[in-house]
Design a protein around this nucleic acid. Structure first.
Length: 577
RNA sequence: CGGGGCGUGGCGCAGUCUGGUAGCGCACAUGCUCGGGGUGCAUGUGGUCGGAGGUUCAAAUCCUCUCGCCCCGACCA
């Protein structure tokens, strides 16, 4: 491509609504432009990258035995009502009516449509397992779109769905998909980790997320520093470090009530009593499961002062309402007789779920269930008893890995892929069955597998940039090689030489950007670096005199001189096609 | 949804408090200049100041309504 016949659209300045580096650089490099909140146009440079990612995904999916198809982005309400997600999904699902007043939605995902296809087309166990995928725009009406294409409302996604006679078959295909995903991210050249994930509302037994590691990631992921344990912090567990002090000889503190005016938060109580948050306990009041009388009791969740509640773990408990709902202040006052900020575990009249680590404390501090008072020297058994001891908290750096091997470290990641063993959630509701070898109708068991194509583009930039711009891996660069002429508009021989190199490299199959604009060298250099073209050839009069082109990689400091006749072969050794 | 902020040429901003008929940088066009890191000079194109209504002799500026965009939001018990 010659720049004179292309839309480079680079900018020197960053728009003020771009607050992460990938968004800023995608704008400045002329890759995307915002059309409305969460909606972007992909300019030619951006589209080139998007297509490259898409093609790698497509090749690996095909190689793994998946078959491509394409489903509509507009979907009829009937199918969503059948799966009961029409009501479950919430406002993220954009709903509307057509001219005949029939209800539709813009597809945020395609389980319903694919299940409908498969139940109509697949009748025999002999046709299983089946693995279908598509690459398509999805729409989710995000409350707050942000970070450019990282969390936009419309985005490009590869989604695959598999159908099986039984769970064993599902598990083996799941493993094949897991490996295909690893190949995809390896080929793109990203630093990523596969982690255990919460399967969430979608249900099912097994689930992994694939995260690109980056400071700006929205998710926290926990790894063992010695084993291969890795999990989303939402899901991560740890072993309890049992460093309980032995008080069997009775040398504990006395229970004492202290007047603590205006002390409500853990931070305030620590300051007031000059203690560490590890020596305190916080008591969160949430709503419980509605009982047989139709009443909704309150449940207390007890955590060590320095720990954070994991809402997913809490909501998963059989006594706790799901999704998790915090009790309102007046309810708490009514039932417990004290306000939030003064709640504690002693003589607490509701079910008490105590986190593992809170349960091994002794001589700790908590609210007194009396406004403006706290208790010190509290001890389990003697002063209070847990209804149940459970895992309720987010793991933190330094916790013991659940496999007992090593300690957890926590890093941030951008979720770019997610695979699920769905089971029969959709196939059962939508009656997707096949006949088995005995002629009996069997409900198929399903898996689903997503990759955020547009998000990968942003994630790759988050991971690969410097102060001059993007640094693409060869695999997804919009152009692999830039040809930059020096003083071309005065020196015909520079133009001729560039044209010649451009022809040769293009013929060799490379994506080459020949910057033939009448601009000063600084502009040409700056733009090629901003766009992130990994390999750069400079042709100058001086070089022509020496019969040499200059080669430099985007990441290297110094350039190398290469004789013109060796240039193509030289690049073949440097640039991965 | 709650809280905060912002809408002025394509982009980044000043002007708004204290009303007087719109300005700067970048980009763009033309000419000269420069020619290995966003050259310099000159000239020029482009904005009914998000929209509607109101106050006023006069509104980007004051008032009312409205639309759009951005940021933050369990962590507290």
């Amino acid at each position: 491509m010659k720049v004179s016949q292309y839309l480079l659209a680079t900018r020197r300045e960053t728009p003020n609504d771009a607050d992460i580096v990938s968004h800023q650089l995608m704008f400045r490099a002329g890759m995307v432009r915002k059309v409305a909140s969460g909606l972007y146009s992909w300019l030619p440079t951006g589209l080139r990258v998007l297509r490259k990612v898409e093609n790698i995904v497509r090749e690996e999916m095909d190689r793994a035995g998946a078959i491509e198809l394409l489903m509509p982005s507009v979907q009829p309400a009937e199918l969503w009502k059948e799966s009961e997600r029409w009501d479950e999904f919430g406002p993220e699902l954009l709903r509307f009516r057509d001219r005949h007043n029939r209800e539709f939605c813009l597809g945020p995902t395609h389980e319903e449509i694919i299940t409908d296809i498969i139940r109509n087309e697949v009748r025999s166990y002999k046709q299983l397992p089946a693995n279908f995928y598509q690459v398509q725009n999805k729409f989710r009406d995000e409350v707050r779109p942000r970070f450019g294409v990282m969390r936009s409302r419309e985005f490009l996604m590869k989604d695959a769905y598999t159908f099986h006679l039984d769970d064993a078959c599902l598990k083996s295909t799941y493993k094949v998909m897991y490996e295909a995903y690893c190949k995809i991210f390896d080929r793109i050249g990203l630093n990523y980790r596969a982690v255990l994930a919460d399967s969430g509302a979608i249900g099912g037994s097994g689930s992994h997320e694939f995260h690109v590691l980056a400071e700006s990631g929205e998710d926290a992921i926990a790894f063992s520093d010695t084993s291969d344990y890795a999990a989303n912090v939402e899901k991560a567990t740890c072993l309890v470090a049992d460093d309980r002090v032995d008080h069997s000889s009775g040398d504990t503190q006395q229970l004492e009530e202290i007047h603590t005016p205006d002390v409500r938060t853990m931070e305030q109580i620590c300051k007031f009593l000059n203690i560490d948050a590890k020596q305190g306990v916080k008591t969160l009041i949430v709503k419980g499961i509605i009982d047989s009388d139709g009443k909704q009791p309150l449940v207390a969740l007890v955590l060590r002062g320095d720990h954070l509640l994991n809402e997913i773990k809490a909501a998963a408990h059989s006594l706790v309402a799901s999704p998790l709902e915090f009790a309102k202040d007046d309810e708490i006052n009514q039932v417990i007789g004290a306000s939030p900020g003064s709640i504690g575990v002693v003589k607490l009249n509701v079910t008490m779920l105590v986190d593992n680590d809170a349960s091994i404390l002794s001589d700790f501090v908590c609210g007194a269930n009396r406004n403006d008072y706290h208790l010190t020297g509290v001890n389990w058994e003697r002063d209070a008893t847990a209804t149940e001891i459970v895992d309720l908290r987010n793991v933190v750096e330094g916790d013991i890995s659940p496999d007992g091997k090593g300690k957890l470290t926590i890093k941030r990641g951008i979720e770019v892929g997610h695979i699920f063993q769905l089971g029969t959630k959709y196939s059962e509701k939508m009656k997707a069955t096949v006949l088995n070898e005995n002629g009996k109708a069997i409900t198929m068991t399903m898996g689903c597998y997503g990759i955020g194509i547009s998000r990968i583009v942003a994630a790759a930039i988050e991971q690969n940039h410097d102060d001059r711009g993007i640094i693409w891996p060869d695999s997804i660069a919009p152009f692999q090689i830039a040809i930059i002429p020096m003083n071309m508009h005065r020196a015909h021989r520079v133009r001729e030489r560039c044209e010649d190199i451009y022809e040769q490299l293009t013929a060799a199959g490379y994506d080459v950007l020949f910057d033939d604009r009448k601009e000063r060298p600084g502009v040409l250099f700056a733009d090629s670096e901003l766009i992130g073209i990994p390999h750069r050839i400079v042709v100058s009069e001086r070089g022509i005199d020496a019969n040499e082109a200059e080669y430099k990689h985007r990441t290297s400091r110094d350039a190398e001189q290469v004789p013109f006749e060796q240039l193509v072969d030289y690049l073949k050794g440097k640039v991965n096609l």
